[in-house]
Structure formats: structure tokens, C-alpha cells
């Protein structure tokens, strides 16, 4: 495992912007955490299947049928900006 974490770059991927102080602090704290989790390198995992979930459920389907659910008014009730039953966001294309 390599610990070449660049917090600024990774933060950008997650749509976060860090102040210089935050970047410096997180860099050192997360380097420490990564140093700790590197102990997993000791474990022999050859032939071991990964566990994504403790319940092995597969392909849970339901009828593709309409149900009573939110009205547009309810769905929009927490929107920071809305009009004409739509969420309003800043212009995407110039």
C-alpha cells in the first residue's frame, strides 16, 4: 500500500475546498490514520472472498408499479430554490 494521499486533490474529487489550515491539518491526521490502517498488509488474504455486506441478499426485486408517494409540492418543499415544479440551479451551459 502506498500512502501518497494528497488531501487537496482528493478533496476536489469530493467537491470540497479546504483552507490552507484545514489542508495541513488533515494531511497530517490522515497520514497518521493511513499509517495505522496499513497494518492490514500483515494479513494473509489470499483466497479470501470480500464481504460487502453481512447479509448475503441478492437481486431484491419488486413489481414495477406506481405507488402513492410524494406530490411535487412535497418533493420540492425543502428545495433551496424552486419554481414551476422544478429545482432551480445556476446555469449549467453558457
Amino acid at each position: 500500500m502506498s500512502a501518497e494521499l494528497n488531501v487537496r486533490h482528493t478533496a476536489q474529487l469530493a467537491r470540497l475546498e479546504l483552507t490552507d489550515a484545514e489542508a495541513a491539518k488533515f494531511q497530517s491526521q490522515l497520514n497518521q490514520v493511513l499509517g495505522y490502517v496499513r497494518k492490514l498488509e500483515e494479513v494473509d488474504v489470499s483466497g479470501v472472498e470480500p464481504t460487502a455486506h453481512s447479509n448475503q441478499v441478492h437481486n431484491v426485486f419488486r413489481e414495477d408499479a406506481s405507488r402513492e408517494w410524494f406530490t411535487p409540492e412535497v418533493a420540492l418543499s425543502n428545495a433551496p430554490r424552486q419554481a414551476n415544479q422544478l429545482f432551480i440551479v445556476p446555469k449549467v451551459l453558457e
Partner: peptide
Amino acid sequence: KRRIILGTYVLSSGYYDAYYLRAQKVRTL
């Protein structure tokens, strides 16, 4: 923020196998 950054990193291309996949295998153990 700290956890989002760590989580984004362990899932990112080039590190996924070393961190996330390995962690899932140790989870099995």
C-alpha cells in the same frame, strides 16, 4: 470532511485494491 476525503481516497483509482478490497477481505475473516 476528514472522513469524506479518506473514503474518497480509499475508493480512488489505484488505491481501491490496496485499501477497500483488502479491507473487505479482512472483514470476511
